[in-house]
Design a protein around this nucleic acid. Structure first.
Lengths: 337, 337
DNA sequence: CTGAAAGCGCTTACAG
DNA sequence: CTGAAAGCGCTTACAG
């Protein structure tokens, strides 16, 4: 087991200089065919593999992107990872994926590690508790551009890729109204998250557009846990005038909501219509599906985020740029038969 | 936007040498408190972040592991990734995850990229078509140790972490027999995969142990596609003496099998018992579950694979080691109520 | 207590 | 056509 063959090893063996070997391997016009042949032959024999780390080091770039997400097992993020990796691969970049598990301290540590490893940029869906934007300002200050996605930062002075939540909410509410619903509850995301506030807002706007009066008792906050969803479902279903449809922050919550109905209100299972954000692949296997999903296209969000990041990286090399982009990926309503 | 502050920047500003700054920051005993203070102060002010890439380069190690899997969205592999990442993080290692999407050429490319980037080791679940072990021999030859997991390599001279498939198969067949089944079909994996052959063998052995005669017509090969599963299901159910239970290579196939019954043999839905490998988290949301899952503990497999890899990396530094390990992670039968 | 030098593997501008 | 030298950011053995 030998440790990687280097240009020097080859140079010594062939009695030539390292520079000549380097140029021969990169097929430089100044090198004679004879030399190129000899070098290539030995390189193959010895399984010479160029040390990219050394190349990157010299270029002071890592050709690596950092991707931070709450949870890999969430199919929404799984799809986003794929999008990022595709664009990264096209650009000959590697991706390091890390999970915050919704923990702010963990997230900060990850950012620090990535920063120390000099990733060329960071793409992040922040944890549900992340408020402080200081770590991101620091990243940018030290020359590492950041693109947020899915979950909005608490300040607007950042690059950000999201679904077109407003349009998604409108399509969903319209669809529910068309199906005859008038009491449509909203299972809103954790209130600390800007994206939760936004979707709540869009829900209200959509109701107004559809001529339905907003009723604050129909808004209940979930925390992504099954227990939290169960509690909220109980409150809603025990109302004297319970909702007939649910507009849900995230479809994993819908799954829990459906399970709740199955257990405690079986009779309502086919009556309470649910629509949630995120068209998860696993929904195809369910017998009791949400009536529709708001397809957020997290795969495309990943692609857009990576492309935006690369554009920012390229710009950086030419001039300082203080313009921030907010890209909205269109939503589509997917009706589950 | 400045590009990363370096030791040199600090040294120049403070009128001292780079070595002194380096030592001050690593709290070397030889440096005066006064100097340390001055250095630390400026380092903080300037957000100095040590360039790990440079450190790694000097140590000729990347502190990065390569992880190659067929598909990130398969929860089996998602859980395995988590296991690998946990162990890597404990060892201050980064992980680069890449997907082969069951494509041999893609897999080879990934191996090449990882090799060029001088990952310190590779953990891989090979694609379903991977036969040639040459790329892995090359990796090992150039000093990059490899650990296979889940899917066995085509030669035995490699480190390998798998479920205890034999035990898993036995538990599954026993359980089905106890439920009164005598005609138990096997939906076997792609025959080119060694792991498929093994599970087939263990299925036969288990039948024998339970006193059931093996019937080759009850073995049908699937290819992981829904169409492939449907075809096989049709063949099985149209037999004059059809099976009453299915022992299935992988639970994603079970999901398709269940969907097939729902569509075309609804009456048999609750009669044909299925058991598949892999206790996928998404099963909890299904109304019609396999009667049981063979929990392969892919999360633990990830942990074991990473630990084995680290042991190999450590050994490498001391001496050449030609001993190969095959670790079998215990299986558990999970009965879905 | 501080600093000069060498070196990790590579590329590239320059000299010959 | 080939090679010597410098340098990417850091650490470390050695000199002073």
């Amino acid at each position: 087991m030998k440790k990687g063959v280097t240009l020097k090893d080859i140079a010594i063996k062939l009695n030539m200089s390292v520079s000549t070997v380097s140029k021969a391997l990169s097929n430089d016009a100044s090198i004679s065919d004879m030399t190129k042949e000899r070098v290539l032959k030995l390189a193959n024999e010895w399984y010479y593999t160029p040390n990219e780390a050394a190349r990157h080091f010299k270029q002071n770039k890592s050709f690596t992107l950092g991707l931070i997400i709450p949870d890999l097992l969430d199919q929404f993020y799984g799809l986003a990872i794929n999008g990022v990796e595709e664009v990264a691969a096209e650009n000959k970049y590697n991706v390091i994926v890390s999970q915050s598990h919704e923990n702010v301290e963990k997230e900060c540590k990850i950012i620090d590690v990535m920063s120390r490893n000099r990733v060329d940029g960071v793409i992040i869906a922040i944890s549900k508790n992340t408020q402080d934007m200081a770590p991101f300002h620091k990243l940018i200050y030290t020359g590492i551009p950041v693109v947020f996605f899915a979950r909005a930062p608490t300040e607007m002075s950042f690059n950000y890729v999201s679904a077109n939540n407003e349009d998604g909410a409108l399509k969903a509410i319209k669809f529910l109204v068309k199906r005859g619903h008038k009491r449509i509850a909203h299972l809103m995301g954790p209130s600390a998250m800007p994206i939760s506030q936004l979707r709540l807002e869009y829900y209200k706007n959509a109701l107004t557009k559809e001529g339905i009066e907003f009723d604050p008792v129909l808004v209940k906050e979930i925390d992504f846990t099954t227990a939290g969803t169960n509690k909220v479902m109980k409150q809603l279903l025990n109302m004297k005038n319970p909702p007939t449809a649910l507009f849900i922050f995230k479809n994993y919550v819908s799954l829990d909501a459906i399970n709740y109905l199955k257990k405690y209100h079986r009779s309502k299972l086919s009556k309470v219509d649910m629509i949630g954000f995120g068209n998860l692949p696993l929904i195809q296997y369910l017998d009791h599906k949400p009536v529709a999903s708001i397809e957020e296209n997290s795969h495309i969000m990943g692609i857009e985020a990576a492309q935006l990041l690369f554009r920012t990286i390229d710009q950086q090399e030419t001039e300082v740029n203080e313009i921030y982009h907010h890209i909205k990926v269109p939503c589509k309503l997917i009706i589950h038969h």
